[in-house]
């Protein structure tokens, strides 16, 4: 019986024939491993083509319009380079990053703590919910004048604006995560005599980690808005200050360069957040399909 199997001619490997690429368009030769149907071509080349078309059209149209009203990508790049070399962009970028980081980290610390409190205690939830609902519904930018009255026009006030914009979604998602702790895990803690501290830090908080990061992502967008608004309305420093100044001077290319830098701040922060999540909480990868 065994010899029978050995003597049989091995079946033609179907993949080998496909690999030589004669049957398919040339770009499908570079399929991304583990992702059938998705090729390096479709994944990277198509976006690049799209961007190239966009910038070409912009360049052509921008060159024919009044330079006060509109600009071209090449001018934006030149403006960015000037801003970097003459030392206006660096400090502005630093101020922006600092405002964002301090306000956001404070919001995360307070938001997670309050979120745990609300998630655990029905009394705290009932008592704090009105405020959370109020601040969620209020356009918080309207509170900027009040922040100025209370905290002046400096660093503190900007941090407060970032904080009050970011903190609510962190509170809400943390509370939701803590509340969703499976009752079976609570039972495990009870059977093995977890104390209150262990229950919170060992079960409820880790269970909320995916929710907390979802909240942090939402809060990051809001914190960015808060940062720019604060720099435009309160102190006129940082990237927000640059945007206002160049806007008033009709330097459209420089304005767009500043906006582009601001969006880079957002991208850097988002990447940082994702790196932290993957580094500290590798188990959250695909955590949405975990059982209950």
């Amino acid at each position: 019986m065994a010899t029978d199997v050995v003597s049989r001619k091995p079946a033609k490997p179907a993949r080998a024939q496909r690999k030589d690429g004669f049957e398919r368009p040339f770009w499908e030769r570079w399929t991304i491993p583990g992702k059938p149907g998705s090729t390096w071509f479709s994944r990277f080349t198509l976006p690049v083509i799209s961007l190239a078309i966009f910038f070409t059209v912009w360049q052509l149209v921008g060159g024919r319009v009044d330079p006060i009203l509109f600009t071209t990508p090449s001018k934006v790049v030149r403006a960015l380079w000037t801003m970097i070399t003459d030392g206006t962009l660096g400090p502005a970028f630093g101020v922006a990053m600092k405002d964002l980081a301090v306000g956001y980290v404070l919001a995360a610390a307070v938001g997670i703590s309050v979120g745990i409190l609300i998630g655990r205690s029905q009394v705290a939830e009932r008592m704090l919910n009105p405020y959370i609902n109020f601040f969620q519904a209020t356009p918080l930018i309207a509170l900027v004048p009040l922040v100025v009255i209370w905290f002046g026009v400096g660093f503190q006030a900007r941090v407060v604006v970032v904080f009050i914009l970011a903190v609510w979604s962190i509170i809400i998602s943390t509370a939701a995560g803590v509340k969703q702790t499976p009752s079976s895990l609570i039972d495990v803690g009870r059977v093995y005599k977890y104390n209150r501290m262990q229950m919170v830090l060992g079960i409820e908080l880790p269970n909320a980690v995916p929710n907390i990061f979802a909240g942090l992502r939402i809060a990051l967008g809001k914190a960015l808005i808060g940062m720019i608004i604060a720099q435009m309305e309160i102190s006129l420093t940082g990237l927000g200050g640059l945007v206002v100044n160049y806007g008033n001077a009709f330097k459209t290319a420089y304005l767009l360069g500043s906006v582009f830098t601001a969006s880079m701040v957002g991208v850097i922060a988002a990447v940082l957040l994702e790196v932290i999540r993957k580094w500290l909480f590798p188990w959250t990868e695909g955590a949405n399909d975990r059982r209950r």
Partner: peptide, 17 residues
């Protein structure tokens, strides 16, 4: 909860982290 018991749960109830 009585001291020193072992409990095996229906859905294994392991901590995913």
């Amino acid at each position: 909860i009585p001291p020193r018991i072992g409990f095996v749960f229906q859905d294994s109830a392991l901590m995913p982290w």
